[in-house]
Amino acid sequence: MAFIGYARVSTQDQDNALQLDALGKAGCHVIYQEKASGSTRRGRQELARCLASLEKGDVLVVYKIDRIARSLFDLLEILRQLESVGATIKSVTEPLDTTNSMGVFVIQILGAVAQLERSMIRERSIAGQIAARERGRLPGRSRNLSKSDEPMLVSEYLSGAFTYEQLSRKYQVSISTVKRAVYRITKPSDYLKRGKC
């Protein structure tokens, strides 16, 4: 069994000495550290290396949970990774410690709360879509191109006198908006199959 530490600060200007001292006192002989924003897992390469290094019986030690996870969902995903290799996690400043039964129980409650939150978000989203349909609004973004401009744009494209890029400048829309308008008219069956009507 090994105690593996992970320390993170958000910017290059910040100092992680406090975290390093606390992790050292907790018995960590190996500490992964980085200076990176916690907003994306992709940007935290040392965290990825740390998690990949863990083996059965190892304990991942952090100063605070927000140093390792940006959200409850992120934390639960990390905990699933740890569980898959037989490792556990401990925070030196918070009551999160999956090395004991009470800590595991707390994690199970957090998991149930996260599942409830996901379900409630889904229910609200579906209810919002139904309400919008009842008011005559279709879900999704409104078109950038007006219904009167669209046939004119397509006609100009089909004449061969204009390119997608020229039409995007003329109608002040993106090239992808121009392409979608053309596809809606020239390839309606393909367009409907992709669900972009």
Rank of each mutant, 00 (worst) to 15 (best):
Tyr32Ser: 07
Ser125Ile: 08
Ile175Ala: 04
Asn100Cys: 03
Tyr63Thr: 13
Gly27Cys: 03
Met1Gln: 05
Glu123Trp: 15
Lys64Cys: 02
Leu54Ala: 00
Glu46Gln: 15
Ser37Asn: 03
Phe162Pro: 01
Tyr157Glu: 01
Lys179Glu: 14
Arg137Leu: 12
Lys170Tyr: 05
Phe105His: 02
Thr40Pro: 00
Asp97Phe: 10
Phe3Ile: 02
Lys147Leu: 11
Ile31Pro: 00
Arg180Lys: 14
Val113Cys: 02
Val104Gln: 10
Ile65Ala: 09
Gly38Glu: 02
Ala26Lys: 10
Arg44Phe: 02
Asp13His: 11
Ser119Arg: 11
Thr99Arg: 15
Ser155Tyr: 07
Val178Thr: 04
Gln81His: 06
Leu192Pro: 00
Leu76Ser: 13
Ser189Gln: 13
Glu55Met: 00
Arg67His: 06
Ile31Gly: 03
Ser189Tyr: 12
Val173Trp: 06
Ala114Asp: 12
Ile185Asp: 01
Tyr164Ile: 14
Thr177Met: 01
Ser53Leu: 01
Ser142Thr: 15
Gly136Met: 07
Leu47Thr: 01
Gly43Cys: 06
Leu72Glu: 00
Tyr32Asp: 05
Asn144Lys: 14
Gly195Phe: 11
Asp149Glu: 13
Ser84Asn: 13
Pro151Asn: 01
Lys64Ser: 03
Val178Met: 01
Arg67Thr: 05
Tyr164Asp: 05
Cys197Asp: 04
Lys193Tyr: 03
Asn100Glu: 14
Asn144Ala: 15
Gly103Thr: 01
Glu150Cys: 09
Thr11Asn: 09
Lys56Ser: 10
Val30Arg: 15
Pro151Leu: 08
Leu82Ile: 03
Arg137Thr: 01
Glu165Phe: 13
Gly27Trp: 06
Ser142Phe: 05
Ala17Cys: 08
Gly136Cys: 06
Ile121Gln: 10
Ser189Lys: 03
Ala112Cys: 12
Asn16Gly: 12
Thr177Val: 02
Ser174Val: 08
Gly5Asn: 03
Tyr6Leu: 10
Gln129Arg: 14
Glu83Val: 09
Ser189His: 12
Thr99Gly: 14
Lys147Trp: 07
Thr98Cys: 10
Gln14Arg: 07
Gln108Pro: 00
Gly103Val: 04
Val62Ala: 05
Gly195Lys: 04
Glu55Lys: 09
Arg41Lys: 10
Ser174Gly: 10
Met120Phe: 13
Ala36Glu: 12
Leu82His: 01
Arg180Gln: 10
Gln129Ser: 13
Ser155Ile: 02
Leu23Phe: 06
Ser174Lys: 15
Val178Cys: 04
Glu46Leu: 04
Met152Asn: 05
Lys56Ile: 13
Gln12Ala: 11
Glu165Thr: 15
Lys64Trp: 08
Thr88Asn: 08
Arg8Cys: 05
Gly195Tyr: 08
Asn144Pro: 00
Ala52Ile: 02
Ile109Ala: 06
Gln45Cys: 06
Thr88Val: 04
Ala22Glu: 02
Gln108Ile: 02
Lys193Ala: 11
Asp149Val: 05
Ala181Lys: 11
Ile89Cys: 04
Leu167Arg: 12
Gly195Cys: 04
Val92Arg: 07
Tyr171Met: 04
Cys28Arg: 07
Ile65Asp: 02
Gly111Phe: 08
Met120Gln: 13
